[in-house]
Amino acid sequence: MFGNILTGLVALIHCYIVYVEMVLWDTPRGHKAFNLKPDFASASKVLAANQGLYNGFLATGLIWGLYRGTGGFQIKMFFLLCVAVAGLYGGATVGRKILFVQTLPAVLAIIALWLGR
């Protein structure tokens, strides 16, 4: 139960990331969320939308796993592992904040799902 709640939270975080990357990237709110300069945001808008799409796939996979209930354990684990690995890479290449926003919630959900099995 608690693992599903955390998985849902990770899915919601990724839905928000999709929205920021695909819709708000080149706005003051997007600039603040990702610490962007306006000229860089404008030049990278298409790349950010593509990145947002991939985050949307992660959110969709997590929601699919939740929808499957107990039969979705492996689906949830796979997509949570993908989120955790993506967060580790982002934390190493972009900034440590990603470790707390993406990796930590995914790892906590993995642990909770595993313990609740």
Score class of each variant (00 low, 15 high):
Arg117Phe: 07
Trp64Ala: 12
Ala11Phe: 07
Leu104His: 02
Gly69Thr: 01
Gly95Cys: 09
Gly61Phe: 02
Leu88Ser: 12
Asp26Gln: 08
Ala109Arg: 08
Ala112Cys: 11
Trp25Arg: 06
Leu88Asn: 00
Ser42His: 05
Ala43Gln: 14
Ala48Trp: 06
Phe57Gly: 15
Ile63Thr: 13
Phe78Gln: 02
Leu53Asp: 08
Leu108Phe: 05
Ile17Thr: 12
Lys45Asp: 10
Val94Met: 12
Ala109Met: 10
Tyr54Gly: 13
Leu108Lys: 04
Ala59His: 03
Gly90Asp: 02
Leu62Gln: 06
Asp39Lys: 08
Phe73Cys: 02
Leu113Asn: 15
Ile5Asp: 00
Val107Asp: 03
Thr60Glu: 00
Ala33Asn: 06
Ala112Tyr: 01
Arg96His: 13
Tyr89Leu: 12
Gly69Met: 04
Ala11Cys: 10
Trp114Gly: 14
Ala86Gln: 04
Thr93Pro: 03
Leu113Glu: 11
Arg117Glu: 09
Ala109Phe: 11
Leu88Asp: 06
Ile13Arg: 02
Lys76Phe: 00
Val94Thr: 09
Ile98Arg: 01
Ala49Gln: 13
Ala41Thr: 07
Gly116Thr: 11
Gly71Met: 06
Leu36Gln: 03
Gly61Gln: 05
Lys76Met: 10
Ala84Ile: 12
Gly72Thr: 10
Leu36Thr: 10
Ala106Val: 08
Gly90Glu: 00
Ala41Pro: 15
Val18Ile: 14
Ile111Arg: 07
Val20Asn: 02
Ile13Cys: 05
Gly30Val: 09
Phe78Leu: 15
Trp64Glu: 06
Leu36Tyr: 00
Ala59Phe: 00
Tyr16Val: 11
Asn50Gly: 15
Ala48Gln: 08
Leu66Lys: 05
Gln102Ser: 14
Ile17Glu: 11
Arg68Cys: 14
Leu104Ala: 15
Val10Ser: 04
Met1Tyr: 05
Leu12Tyr: 03
Phe40Pro: 03
Phe34Pro: 06
Gly72Phe: 01
Thr7Asp: 05
Arg96Pro: 14
Gly91Leu: 00
Phe57Leu: 14
Gly72His: 03
Val18Pro: 00
Phe79Val: 10
Met1Asp: 09
Glu21Arg: 10
Phe78Cys: 10
Leu66Pro: 08
Glu21Pro: 10
Leu104Val: 14
Asn4Ala: 09
Ser42Gly: 11
Val46His: 08
